[in-house]
Design a protein around this nucleic acid. Sequence first.
RNA 1: GGGGAGGUGGCAGAGCGGUCAAUCGCAGCAGGCUGUAAACCUGCCGCCUUCGGGCUACGGAGGUUCGAACCCUCCCCUCCCCA
Length: 309
Amino acid sequence: MRLPILSILGPTASGKSALGIELALKHGGEIISCDSTAVYRGFDIGTDKVPMHERRGVPHHLIDVAEPTEAYTAARFVHEAVEAIKAIYDRGHWPILVGGTGLYYRALVRGLFPGPGADAEMRARLEAIAGRHGVGFLHRMLQRVDPASATRILPRDLKRMIRALEVYFLTGKPLTDHFAATVSPLRNYETLGIALSPPMRLITERVEKRVEAQFEQGLLDEIRGLIARGVPETARPFGGLVYRQALEHLHGVRSEEDTRALIARENRHYARRQLIWFRKEPNLVWLQTSGEDPGTLAAVESLLSSRIV
RNA sequence: GGGGAGGUGGCAGAGCGGUCAAUCGCAGCAGGCUGUAAACCUGCCGCCUUCGGGCUACGGAGGUUCGAACCCUCCCCUCCCCA
């Protein structure tokens, strides 16, 4: 008898982490972060990692597992998350997935096709072609070798086009053909997914407060420190939300005040995209409250009590 | 008081006689996503629409013209410089 893998999803600042910890404390849970940026060591403030002392002894997995110069991927996430889930159940504990990275969640729950991963050399070559002949050239190329993907991928969506071509050239088979072989890594597990979706007004408010707090906690010093330690500004996590805008500010692109406002706005945009993503996920139970709302905990508890397997 | 610049859709800012409901950007709204995903990409964005189009628009009022956001006259208002 054990609890289903619980997933707590939701947009930024919806209170996922707090809820996860609360539930973990009650039922012997361990948290698996589903966050594409929290995996990077040294990027703490801008990713809003829960500090050690606030974790209250609850183990957190898939946080700080990669160097900033590494390229963490959805595939690696899936692999490590599955390993973590197994290990947690083996310990007799309960795995709780907490995060907001839609692709990672979907990849874990629905699976990725069993094909080749990123190939830096191939990508560089394709990018060079795009640079020389334009994106349209790549799209026409894709049209010839993988018409189905060419229809799905818009002509200017370079990243997806490159991936589709990469898969084709590496396997001789169109990407869309590979899709049929996709299986869920969690197919043998019982799962329960919660989507937190408090009113957007509340998200906006919380995001604004959080951005202020991030600056107060020394976001800029954290960035300076990372650079001083030799992390190149081209490192993956520097290209993401918060860090990108803050880095621009350090380069004098705009004032700190404007940067804070910009980051808050970008966070709202991001929250919207996250929700769009989750809405397409089947089998999620939606709660219109934040993770700290006592009603949320009660609702999840009651869902769990009917789902013990 | 004298001299100069200008008033364009939520902001910012092009246009300077027809092809302008008005470039581009931002904001706003909607959406996509199978190994970079906090990334990347798409559509809408005056009002109405059966999505073909219809209507009202570029500070205000007149005027010139087949035709004006663009030219002329007057008025109103902003900003800068000198006093």
